[in-house]
């Protein structure tokens, strides 16, 4: 296992180099000048040229690339062109907390409801609960989460004002206060993911429930709850874990739309803002962070496989 993990960590390096190189050139080849955006609409060409020079944006792209790459190797991701020149690592870190809490809350809702509904659907296969749940999950998969987010805000924050319509409070403001702000965005995020997990769990459970070891367990007289949750579910979870892992990695890169709709200062909103303002160092930093998060979460998922299925060894 140790060697396997080491190998996977080493494999992360070329991924980051390739991703970083591609994003660097894409961003620098895009039209748009951060100096002009920073100076405002009345800026003269001379002012724009002077600030571009000060930011080092007038140099050939290749030279900028090698300098950036050299700094990355030293762990220096550069400074934001906006945000008062704050280091990129700090900018990303300050937005990471909101994304992490939103992801964990949303994914917890998705996993709990997804698995429970999936198991119930399979257990009541082709009966009324199954059909109702499948209709709901079909809607969940189909519904765009930006629309759901706006509807949730409309209903639970404006028509029946029981939750805040937007915003974010860090944990330091109190656990309940912080959680209140996350409920609506987490539900908006979780509905689609929960539906996907429920449908995946149901399909795998149905397959699992047909296996001989289930028949054996029932023949031994085990209670149905043990049969379903211990024997069938554990074996049905492997593909579901893949889906959960992908969702987790995806959300850690910032739930762009949900963060936007609920005004949550997370990685997704930071990315959008940075693209619009052409804040190159921040964009590059975020993309490297997202690539790293994907690889690491996938690694966690692979490790989790061996927990649920002891036959899988590394």
């Amino acid at each position: 296992m140790g060697i396997y993990l080491l190998r996977r960590f080493v494999a992360l390096i070329p991924v980051l180099i390739i991703v970083g190189t591609i994003i660097f050139f894409i961003m620098h080849l895009m039209p748009g000048n951060p100096a002009s955006l920073m100076l405002g609409p009345e800026a003269t060409d001379e002012q724009i040229t002077a600030l571009s020079e000060k930011m080092g944006l007038d140099r050939p792209v290749l030279i900028q690339f090698f300098e950036w790459f050299k700094n990355i190797l030293r762990g220096d991701f550069g400074n934001s062109l906006f945000f008062q020149g704050m280091p990129v690592t700090r900018v990303v870190y300050e937005h990471f907390q909101a994304t992490l809490f939103l992801t964990l809350t949303g994914l917890s809702f998705a996993v709990i409801f997804g698995i429970v509904f999936g198991v119930l659907s399979a257990a009541f296969h082709d009966r009324l609960p199954d059909r109702i749940l499948m209709v709901i999950t079909s809607i969940g998969v189909a519904i765009p989460n930006f629309w759901l987010g706006l509807m949730l805000a409309l209903v639970f924050a404006i028509l029946f004002p029981i939750l805040p319509p937007a915003g974010y409070k860090p944990l330091s403001a109190g656990i309940w206060t912080s959680f209140r702000y996350l409920i609506l965005p987490a539900v908006a995020l979780a509905f689609g993911q929960a539906s996907l997990i429920a449908r995946m769990t149901r399909a795998n459970m149905l397959e699992s429930l047909q296996n001989d070891y289930i028949r054996t367990a029932r023949a031994k007289g085990l209670p149905e709850g043990i049969v379903v949750f211990k024997h069938a579910l554990k074996n049905a979870l492997i593909p579901t874990i893949t889906v959960i892992g992908l969702s987790f990695a995806n959300l850690m890169g910032g739930a762009v739309v949900t963060e936007q709709i609920f005004n949550i200062p997370g990685i997704g909103r930071l990315l959008i803002k940075s693209v619009f303002t052409r804040d190159y160092p921040v964009i590059e930093g975020i993309v490297l962070y997202i690539a790293g998060a994907w690889v690491l979460v996938n690694l966690l998922v692979d490790v989790a496989y061996s927990f649920f299925d002891p036959r899988i060894k590394y």
């Binding site: 706006l150 805000a153 409309l154 924050a157 404006i158 004002p161 805040p164 319509p165 937007a166 915003g167 936007q260 709709i261 609920f262 005004n263």
Partner: peptide, 13 residues
Amino acid sequence: DEAVRLNGVEGGE
């Protein structure tokens, strides 16, 4: 987002 700005004030935040 302008819709979010509107929701935010309508919702009292």
